[in-house]
Simulated scan of single mutants.
Amino acid sequence: MEGKWTELPGTVALLLLISPGIAWASYTSAPAPPAAIACSFYSGRSCEECLKNVSCFWCITNNTCLDYPVRNIFPPSSLCAMSAARWGACWINFEALIITISVIVGLLILSITVCCCYCCYCRKRSNSLMRMEAEEENLIRERERRKQEALQRKNERTVKHNEIRKKYGLLQDMDHPYSRYENE
């Protein structure tokens, strides 16, 4: 029996899981009929009496209460047309019940998918923003480091040039600004 459950499409399986809940919600405070009473016993009575037993379904066209064909998932049209069949609740036909549950399940799946995609998009965007901020900080640090290195190299070059000028007598004494005019 478990193999049959795994072979069912998701919507139908959900329908089979949700439908007893709908039947239970429409269940009145009257005690359930004994299991020994067949569904045909309720034929010609009312839909409510028939649907108290969840293994039965009601056919409006001929006011009969029939055993639900568990092996077929959906009642065949030879028993009762889907638009005339009632199962779980008398106020909604089986066809509308299937369509409603399918639409609800489809909307749930769609909304969950959209939420997941939106969350992934937001996470990706925040991660990329954080990554961009980190890269920007790294670029600023790298720029400052390069400026410091360039300034250090410039100072080293100036010292070397001054040593060469001093060696060849080209470096004037910086202590006395007018020494240049005295030698002329």
Rank of each mutant, 00 (worst) to 15 (best):
V114M: 11
I92M: 12
C90Q: 04
T100I: 14
I98W: 03
G106C: 01
I98N: 01
V105M: 08
L108Q: 05
M130K: 15
I92N: 04
Y118A: 12
I112K: 05
E95P: 00
C119V: 15
V103K: 05
A134M: 14
G88F: 00
C90N: 04
C90M: 02
I92Y: 00
C122W: 10
S102F: 00
C122N: 11
S78H: 05
C116T: 11
M130W: 10
S126Y: 10
E135L: 14
K124S: 15
I98V: 14
I109K: 13
A134H: 13
C119F: 13
V103P: 06
N93A: 03
I92Q: 03
E95H: 09
C122A: 13
S77M: 02
F94W: 01
S128M: 15
I92R: 03
M130V: 08
E95F: 06
I92L: 13
I99G: 06
I99W: 14
A89E: 03
L79V: 02
A84T: 06
L108H: 06
A81N: 07
A96V: 14
R131E: 15
E133S: 14
I104A: 02
L97T: 01
C120Q: 13
L110E: 05
M132R: 12
V103F: 09
L97G: 03
S77R: 10
Y121N: 08
W87M: 07
S78N: 06
T100A: 15
V103G: 07
N127M: 12
L108T: 08
G106H: 00
A134I: 12
A81S: 14
A96K: 12
Y118T: 11
L79G: 04
T100Q: 07
R123M: 09
I104S: 02
E135T: 08
C116K: 11
I109D: 11
S83C: 04
A81L: 09
A84D: 15
L79W: 04
F94R: 01
I104D: 01
V103T: 08
I101L: 09
L107D: 04
L97R: 00
W91M: 08
I112Y: 07
C119Q: 15
N127C: 09
Y121V: 06
S102N: 07
I92T: 00
A96L: 12
Y118S: 09
S83R: 08
C117W: 02
A96G: 04
S128D: 14
R125D: 09
P76Q: 09
I104E: 04
T113K: 13
K124A: 10
